[in-house]
Computed example of a mutant assay.
Amino acid sequence: MKALGFVEVSGIVAAVEALDSMLKTADVEFVTCEKRLGGRLVTIIVTGSISAVQEAVESGTARANEITKTVAHAIIANPHEEIIRMIQISAEKLNLAREVVNK
């Protein structure tokens, strides 16, 4: 992973809108999302080049702020291998959930 971008928002709708904007604005790839507090707090994670991730995070944050207030956002360039492992575990959980739903 070259860079990771995080946008944390209140609510699923704002998270989906933020992710849509991020994917349409920059050449980034959706990695996973984390839902906390029953979906009231959602963190979207994307990856790509540093400049693409910066553009995506700015776009996603702006779009989410049109719906609700963005809780936090961050960009990690060249993430440590333990961060990558943590994100991969989250992505695997999301993929397992998709498989269950698709059965």
Rank of each mutant, 00 (worst) to 15 (best):
R85Q: 13
G11Q: 02
A26P: 10
N95H: 11
L4W: 03
E29V: 13
V53T: 02
M22C: 04
G11C: 03
M86T: 15
V101D: 14
H80D: 07
S10C: 06
E29L: 07
T43K: 10
A77L: 06
R98F: 10
I83Q: 03
V7M: 04
E29M: 09
V100H: 11
T47H: 03
D27F: 04
L94M: 07
V100P: 08
N95W: 05
A26I: 00
K35N: 14
A18M: 03
A56T: 00
G48T: 02
V28Q: 01
I67E: 02
I12A: 06
K24F: 07
L4A: 08
R98I: 11
V16M: 06
G48D: 00
E34N: 13
R85Y: 09
A18P: 05
L4Q: 03
L41T: 15
R63A: 12
S90P: 08
I50T: 15
V13C: 07
M86P: 03
V31N: 07
G11M: 02
G48A: 04
I76W: 02
R36D: 10
V42P: 06
M1C: 07
S59G: 09
M22A: 11
R98H: 13
M22P: 03
Q54N: 11
V13W: 02
G38Q: 04
V57M: 00
G11H: 02
A14P: 14
L96S: 13
E99D: 14
E34C: 12
I12G: 06
T25I: 01
A72L: 14
E82V: 11
N65R: 03
M22I: 00
S59Y: 01
S59N: 06
I45C: 05
E82F: 07
E58A: 10
A26G: 09
A72V: 15
V100K: 09
S90W: 10
S59T: 02
A74S: 13
A52I: 00
A77T: 14
E34V: 15
T25M: 06
L4G: 02
M86K: 14
S10Y: 08
F6D: 04
G38I: 08
G39E: 08
V57R: 00
S10F: 09
E55D: 12
L23W: 02
E82D: 10
K2Y: 11
C33A: 09
S90D: 05
V16W: 05
M86S: 13
V31E: 12
R40L: 12
V28K: 00
E99A: 10
I76G: 08
E17Y: 11
T25K: 08
I87W: 04
H73I: 13
N65P: 06
F6W: 07
F30L: 11
K35A: 15
L94Y: 04
E55L: 10
V28Y: 00
